[in-house]
Design a protein around this nucleic acid. Structure first.
Lengths: 112, 112
DNA sequence: TTAACTGCAAATCTTTTGCACAATC
DNA sequence: GATTGTGCAAAAGATTTGCAGTTAA
Protein backbone atom coordinates (compact mmCIF):
# COMPACT_ATOMS: atom_id res chain seq x y z
CA UNK A 1 0.00 0.00 0.00
CA UNK A 2 1.55 3.26 -1.11
CA UNK A 3 1.92 6.24 1.18
CA UNK A 4 -0.68 8.05 -0.91
CA UNK A 5 -3.23 5.27 -0.62
CA UNK A 6 -2.70 4.91 3.11
CA UNK A 7 -3.18 8.64 3.71
CA UNK A 8 -6.38 8.64 1.67
CA UNK A 9 -7.77 5.65 3.53
CA UNK A 10 -6.85 7.10 6.92
CA UNK A 11 -8.39 10.45 6.10
CA UNK A 12 -11.72 8.92 5.15
CA UNK A 13 -11.69 6.73 8.23
CA UNK A 14 -10.91 9.63 10.50
CA UNK A 15 -14.15 11.44 9.77
CA UNK A 16 -17.85 10.69 9.70
CA UNK A 17 -18.07 13.50 7.17
CA UNK A 18 -18.42 12.68 3.46
CA UNK A 19 -15.57 14.19 1.43
CA UNK A 20 -15.32 14.75 -2.31
CA UNK A 21 -12.23 13.62 -4.23
CA UNK A 22 -11.19 17.25 -4.52
CA UNK A 23 -11.51 17.86 -0.79
CA UNK A 24 -9.46 14.73 -0.14
CA UNK A 25 -6.90 15.93 -2.67
CA UNK A 26 -6.42 19.26 -0.90
CA UNK A 27 -6.29 17.65 2.54
CA UNK A 28 -3.66 15.08 1.52
CA UNK A 29 -1.69 17.81 -0.25
CA UNK A 30 -0.93 19.26 3.19
CA UNK A 31 0.94 16.06 4.00
CA UNK A 32 2.12 14.95 0.55
CA UNK A 33 2.41 18.18 -1.49
CA UNK A 34 3.29 16.36 -4.71
CA UNK A 35 0.13 14.26 -4.82
CA UNK A 36 -2.03 14.57 -7.89
CA UNK A 37 -5.78 14.51 -8.27
CA UNK A 38 -5.61 11.49 -10.55
CA UNK A 39 -3.78 9.51 -7.90
CA UNK A 40 -6.55 10.39 -5.48
CA UNK A 41 -9.22 9.21 -7.92
CA UNK A 42 -7.27 6.07 -8.73
CA UNK A 43 -6.83 5.10 -5.09
CA UNK A 44 -10.42 5.93 -4.22
CA UNK A 45 -11.56 3.57 -6.95
CA UNK A 46 -9.25 0.84 -5.71
CA UNK A 47 -10.45 1.28 -2.13
CA UNK A 48 -14.05 1.06 -3.31
CA UNK A 49 -13.29 -2.14 -5.22
CA UNK A 50 -11.59 -3.56 -2.15
CA UNK A 51 -14.76 -2.70 -0.24
CA UNK A 52 -12.84 -0.58 2.25
CA UNK A 53 -14.86 2.55 1.54
CA UNK A 54 -18.06 3.39 -0.30
CA UNK A 55 -18.71 5.91 -3.03
CA UNK A 56 -21.93 7.88 -2.80
CA UNK A 57 -23.22 9.55 -5.94
CA UNK A 58 -25.68 12.35 -5.40
CA UNK A 59 -27.60 13.95 -8.25
CA UNK A 60 -25.98 17.15 -9.48
CA UNK A 61 -23.06 16.85 -7.09
CA UNK A 62 -19.62 15.39 -7.11
CA UNK A 63 -19.22 11.90 -5.68
CA UNK A 64 -18.41 11.67 -2.00
CA UNK A 65 -16.75 8.89 -0.06
CA UNK A 66 -18.03 7.14 3.03
CA UNK A 67 -16.15 5.05 5.57
CA UNK A 68 -19.27 3.01 6.30
CA UNK A 69 -19.27 0.10 3.91
CA UNK A 70 -22.46 -1.58 5.03
CA UNK A 71 -25.50 -0.58 3.06
CA UNK A 72 -27.31 2.32 4.66
CA UNK A 73 -29.40 5.36 3.79
CA UNK A 74 -28.45 9.03 3.65
CA UNK A 75 -30.23 12.10 4.83
CA UNK A 76 -29.20 15.23 2.94
CA UNK A 77 -30.03 18.84 3.65
CA UNK A 78 -30.65 20.59 0.34
CA UNK A 79 -29.74 23.89 2.00
CA UNK A 80 -26.45 23.09 3.67
CA UNK A 81 -25.52 19.93 1.84
CA UNK A 82 -24.92 18.18 5.14
CA UNK A 83 -25.07 14.40 4.84
CA UNK A 84 -26.05 12.08 7.68
CA UNK A 85 -25.86 8.29 7.67
CA UNK A 86 -28.98 6.40 8.66
CA UNK A 87 -28.88 2.76 9.69
CA UNK A 88 -32.27 1.12 9.97
CA UNK A 89 -33.46 -2.45 10.02
CA UNK A 90 -36.82 -1.24 8.84
CA UNK A 91 -35.27 -0.08 5.58
CA UNK A 92 -33.56 -3.39 5.08
CA UNK A 93 -36.72 -5.39 5.54
CA UNK A 94 -38.79 -3.06 3.39
CA UNK A 95 -36.22 -3.23 0.58
CA UNK A 96 -36.29 -6.96 0.89
CA UNK A 97 -40.05 -7.03 0.74
CA UNK A 98 -40.30 -4.67 -2.24
CA UNK A 99 -37.79 -6.66 -4.25
CA UNK A 100 -39.15 -10.11 -3.42
CA UNK A 101 -35.91 -10.89 -1.63
CA UNK A 102 -33.89 -10.31 -4.81
CA UNK A 103 -32.20 -7.05 -3.78
CA UNK A 104 -28.40 -6.93 -3.82
CA UNK A 105 -28.10 -3.38 -2.59
CA UNK A 106 -29.93 -0.09 -2.54
CA UNK A 107 -29.31 3.62 -2.71
CA UNK A 108 -31.62 5.69 -0.57
CA UNK A 109 -31.19 9.41 -0.27
CA UNK A 110 -33.70 11.47 1.63
CA UNK A 111 -33.73 15.18 0.86
CA UNK A 112 -34.99 17.70 3.39
CA UNK B 1 -44.94 24.61 -27.01
CA UNK B 2 -42.68 23.92 -29.96
CA UNK B 3 -43.05 20.89 -32.18
CA UNK B 4 -39.80 19.52 -30.74
CA UNK B 5 -40.90 19.90 -27.14
CA UNK B 6 -44.30 18.33 -27.83
CA UNK B 7 -42.73 15.32 -29.52
CA UNK B 8 -40.35 14.80 -26.60
CA UNK B 9 -43.14 15.05 -24.07
CA UNK B 10 -45.38 12.70 -26.03
CA UNK B 11 -42.63 10.15 -26.47
CA UNK B 12 -41.92 9.99 -22.75
CA UNK B 13 -45.60 9.76 -21.98
CA UNK B 14 -46.15 6.99 -24.48
CA UNK B 15 -43.88 4.54 -22.68
CA UNK B 16 -43.42 3.19 -19.19
CA UNK B 17 -39.82 2.62 -20.21
CA UNK B 18 -37.10 5.03 -19.03
CA UNK B 19 -35.26 6.61 -21.95
CA UNK B 20 -31.93 8.42 -22.00
CA UNK B 21 -31.61 11.80 -23.72
CA UNK B 22 -29.70 10.09 -26.52
CA UNK B 23 -32.39 7.47 -27.05
CA UNK B 24 -35.01 10.22 -27.13
CA UNK B 25 -32.86 12.13 -29.61
CA UNK B 26 -32.69 9.18 -32.03
CA UNK B 27 -36.39 8.44 -31.67
CA UNK B 28 -37.47 12.01 -32.35
CA UNK B 29 -35.03 12.20 -35.25
CA UNK B 30 -37.28 9.74 -37.08
CA UNK B 31 -40.04 12.35 -36.99
CA UNK B 32 -38.01 15.59 -36.96
CA UNK B 33 -34.72 14.74 -38.70
CA UNK B 34 -33.22 18.18 -38.09
CA UNK B 35 -33.52 18.01 -34.29
CA UNK B 36 -30.31 18.38 -32.31
CA UNK B 37 -29.22 16.71 -29.10
CA UNK B 38 -28.92 20.04 -27.33
CA UNK B 39 -32.55 20.83 -28.10
CA UNK B 40 -33.50 17.50 -26.56
CA UNK B 41 -31.53 18.27 -23.40
CA UNK B 42 -32.90 21.80 -23.25
CA UNK B 43 -36.50 20.66 -23.52
CA UNK B 44 -36.02 17.81 -21.08
CA UNK B 45 -34.74 20.29 -18.53
CA UNK B 46 -37.69 22.59 -19.13
CA UNK B 47 -40.16 19.70 -18.81
CA UNK B 48 -38.53 18.67 -15.53
CA UNK B 49 -38.78 22.23 -14.21
CA UNK B 50 -42.42 22.34 -15.24
CA UNK B 51 -42.88 19.10 -13.29
CA UNK B 52 -44.24 17.31 -16.33
CA UNK B 53 -41.59 14.59 -16.27
CA UNK B 54 -38.94 13.41 -13.81
CA UNK B 55 -35.24 12.93 -14.31
CA UNK B 56 -33.68 9.87 -12.74
CA UNK B 57 -29.94 9.83 -12.18
CA UNK B 58 -28.41 6.42 -11.73
CA UNK B 59 -24.80 5.95 -10.65
CA UNK B 60 -22.48 5.35 -13.57
CA UNK B 61 -25.25 5.71 -16.13
CA UNK B 62 -26.73 8.46 -18.19
CA UNK B 63 -29.81 10.18 -16.81
CA UNK B 64 -33.13 8.71 -17.82
CA UNK B 65 -36.54 10.33 -17.92
CA UNK B 66 -39.73 9.13 -16.29
CA UNK B 67 -43.33 10.06 -17.03
CA UNK B 68 -44.32 9.42 -13.42
CA UNK B 69 -43.86 12.67 -11.56
CA UNK B 70 -44.96 11.53 -8.13
CA UNK B 71 -42.15 10.39 -5.88
CA UNK B 72 -41.56 6.66 -6.18
CA UNK B 73 -38.83 4.04 -5.99
CA UNK B 74 -37.01 2.21 -8.76
CA UNK B 75 -36.01 -1.40 -9.10
CA UNK B 76 -33.05 -1.88 -11.41
CA UNK B 77 -31.59 -5.07 -12.80
CA UNK B 78 -27.81 -4.75 -12.81
CA UNK B 79 -27.66 -7.35 -15.57
CA UNK B 80 -30.16 -6.04 -18.08
CA UNK B 81 -30.48 -2.46 -16.87
CA UNK B 82 -34.25 -2.81 -16.85
CA UNK B 83 -35.93 -0.24 -14.63
CA UNK B 84 -39.29 -0.77 -12.92
CA UNK B 85 -41.27 1.83 -11.01
CA UNK B 86 -42.41 0.92 -7.52
CA UNK B 87 -45.17 2.79 -5.75
CA UNK B 88 -45.54 1.98 -2.09
CA UNK B 89 -47.20 3.71 0.83
CA UNK B 90 -44.86 1.83 3.14
CA UNK B 91 -41.89 3.65 1.62
CA UNK B 92 -43.56 6.98 2.05
CA UNK B 93 -44.31 6.41 5.71
CA UNK B 94 -40.88 4.97 6.44
CA UNK B 95 -39.18 7.94 4.75
CA UNK B 96 -41.36 10.20 6.80
CA UNK B 97 -40.47 8.39 9.99
CA UNK B 98 -36.72 8.33 9.28
CA UNK B 99 -36.62 12.03 8.54
CA UNK B 100 -38.81 13.15 11.44
CA UNK B 101 -41.38 14.37 8.94
CA UNK B 102 -38.87 16.77 7.37
CA UNK B 103 -38.39 14.93 4.06
CA UNK B 104 -39.09 16.84 0.87
CA UNK B 105 -38.34 13.98 -1.47
CA UNK B 106 -36.31 10.83 -1.75
CA UNK B 107 -34.36 8.81 -4.27
CA UNK B 108 -34.58 5.08 -3.76
CA UNK B 109 -32.99 2.69 -6.20
CA UNK B 110 -32.97 -1.02 -5.46
CA UNK B 111 -30.40 -3.06 -7.37
CA UNK B 112 -30.89 -6.76 -8.05
C1' DT C 1 14.80 -5.99 -9.89
C1' DT C 2 10.61 -6.23 -11.24
C1' DA C 3 6.05 -5.31 -10.48
C1' DA C 4 3.09 -1.87 -8.80
C1' DC C 5 2.31 3.05 -8.35
C1' DT C 6 2.99 7.91 -9.32
C1' DG C 7 2.33 12.72 -11.56
C1' DC C 8 1.35 14.96 -15.59
C1' DA C 9 -1.18 16.04 -19.58
C1' DA C 10 -4.42 14.78 -22.60
C1' DA C 11 -8.68 12.28 -23.43
C1' DT C 12 -13.31 10.98 -22.23
C1' DC C 13 -18.19 11.36 -21.63
C1' DT C 14 -22.39 13.58 -20.54
C1' DT C 15 -24.51 17.80 -20.33
C1' DT C 16 -24.62 22.89 -20.95
C1' DT C 17 -23.98 27.25 -23.29
C1' DG C 18 -23.15 31.21 -26.77
C1' DC C 19 -24.60 32.65 -30.86
C1' DA C 20 -26.78 33.61 -35.33
C1' DC C 21 -30.84 32.24 -37.45
C1' DA C 22 -35.79 30.58 -37.51
C1' DA C 23 -40.31 30.11 -35.78
C1' DT C 24 -44.07 31.72 -33.20
C1' DC C 25 -47.44 34.93 -30.84
C1' DG D 1 -41.83 43.16 -34.26
C1' DA D 2 -40.54 41.03 -30.02
C1' DT D 3 -39.83 37.09 -27.80
C1' DT D 4 -38.95 32.40 -27.54
C1' DG D 5 -36.90 28.28 -29.42
C1' DT D 6 -33.60 26.06 -32.65
C1' DG D 7 -29.18 23.81 -34.51
C1' DC D 8 -24.50 23.99 -34.48
C1' DA D 9 -20.10 24.09 -32.52
C1' DA D 10 -17.60 24.87 -28.77
C1' DA D 11 -17.22 24.79 -23.61
C1' DA D 12 -17.83 22.87 -19.26
C1' DG D 13 -17.00 19.81 -15.30
C1' DA D 14 -16.01 15.41 -13.19
C1' DT D 15 -13.48 11.50 -13.88
C1' DT D 16 -10.31 8.35 -16.44
C1' DT D 17 -6.30 6.97 -19.08
C1' DG D 18 -1.58 6.62 -21.53
C1' DC D 19 2.84 7.06 -20.60
C1' DA D 20 7.47 7.71 -18.92
C1' DG D 21 9.60 8.03 -14.71
C1' DT D 22 9.56 6.58 -9.47
C1' DT D 23 8.83 3.81 -5.55
C1' DA D 24 8.90 0.03 -2.76
C1' DA D 25 8.72 -5.01 -1.60
Amino acid sequence: MSKQKREIFNLINSTCDHFTAEKIFFEIKKVIPSISLSTVYRNLNVLVQENKIKCLKISDSKSVYDRNVINHAHLISDKSGEITDIFSDKINSLINELSDGKANSFDLIIHY
